[in-house]
Nucleic acid binder design. Structure first.
Lengths: 233, 233
DNA sequence: GCGCAAAATTGCGTGTACGTAAATTTGCGC
DNA sequence: GCGCAAATTTACGTACACGCAATTTTGCGC
């Protein structure tokens, strides 16, 4: 249902996007992330440099996109796929942890590179926030019509918690965080005080568990849904 | 503790920052936000353009900083200042709503300008996330040592919820949100589905109320709490 | 096939963010 | 007051994000 008509035109767009992702990742792995210009990526993908910015709004996005790909929709799908018996918090936490913890086989070295480069770390952590949209949909779907605003808020908070866990984990794995000279720190730029140096799954589970009460409270007390949830994908 | 040593040197830095803020706001109000170059701001503040970026990492930051100033620390202070009797969620929600709802007297026209410019709206909404750090401190302080990670997570989530409420409110007040062509949407760039067009206080209270259970559950030694929900694990 | 309108790509120009190293200022001990 | 080390400001160069308009490509009705 989501992929109604691929649309021959749309398909080509996705192909271009994919080509850019692949090219960006390959070049970054080969020459190091700092030595890759957007011109190089665009050149390797066979498009003009201007086109690159039609698909990605920063140099780092294409690289991390090669790893994160469509993680958001996978998480959303995983949430709706959980058996109706489990609580909402359980479903969400399990789905999120699962999707974030398992790196694709070939993504291992890419992850290593990302943890090494501060700029990539930042962008990578920010991808956690992008799951808000799809997840909100999934929340509404699963609970059978929870309040829209509540769904958006909770989904965004899950993303925030995941981002925090990711940042915390990254900062423990990699080097220390360079503090910029600027004053008005952006939300995601502040150095974290927590450096627990645990495993990423544990860390993420711990972070998300703080949200569990809010998630369960938002579910309208119907653990078993009799709704015909026939349409799956 | 926080302001241990004014430090004559530090004072001058803050003066420069203030000068940049004021200049940026004044120029933006006079000529419209789109017609202000960073060179103009730097020039008006009597520093080099490069110095501007030593204090603010984007052109819009200085403008919104003139309005938001030290909102984060005010919120943190407001949280700790609440009487010990009230629940944590109540304290936090009241403090946040209070600080966000009351625009300074002279900030009125500035707020109007911000709602008009999409770029400023974006930056303004993002400032909500910057309260995470101070708020986390306040949470730990008030609850008498809640888990550090939980405090960071909850504080960040409060910021996220506030940001969402702000975005929702801004999109209802101003014009529609232009969708960018790019694919990998950043967390805060996605168009919100919720356009309730309520008053900002109501909106923010509604958004934050979703987090109330999580906040209250995290307060261990709170006055009257029936601890129904045991932590998993 | 033909042609047309929408969509995507491209080139260009502008403004911006930031690394880097030189120049200037500040704080402090003497 | 003197001078030195650290911090701050500054100039310069590079890369980048993006608006805009011209150009090419795509999809579709005929």
């Amino acid at each position: 249902m989501t992929t109604r008509r691929p649309g021959l035109r749309e398909r080509k767009k996705q192909a271009t996007r994919e080509a850019l992702r692949v090219a960006a990742l390959r070049l970054a792995l080969e020459q190091g992330p700092e030595n890759v210009r957007v011109d190089d990526i665009a050149d390797a993908a066979g498009v003009s440099p201007r086109t690159y910015n039609n698909y990605f709004s920063s140099r780092e996005q294409a690289i991390v996109a090669a790893v994160t790909a469509d993680r958001e929709s996978r998480i959303a799908a995983a949430v709706t796929a959980r058996p109706a018996g489990v609580s909402l918090s359980e479903a969400v936490i399990d789905a999120v942890v699962e999707q974030f913890t398992d790196p694709g086989d070939e993504a291992r070295d890419a992850l290593l590179m990302i943890t090494t480069s501060p700029a990539l770390r930042e962008t990578y952590a920010e991808t956690a926030g992008s799951l808000a949209g799809p997840l909100a949909e999934a929340l509404v779907e699963r609970t059978g019509g929870m309040d829209r605003l509540a769904a958006e808020v909770l989904a965004a908070c899950v993303g925030t918690a995941a981002k925090l866990a990711l940042q915390s984990w990254l900062s423990s794995v990699g080097a220390s965080f360079g503090a910029s000279a600027g004053g008005l720190e952006s939300a995601s730029a502040g150095g974290l005080v927590v450096v627990p140096s645990g495993s990423l799954p544990d860390l993420m589970r711990a972070a998300l568990s703080s949200l569990a009460p809010a998630l369960d409270a938002a579910a309208p007390a119907s653990p078993v849904l009799e709704q015909s949830e026939g349409d799956r994908e």
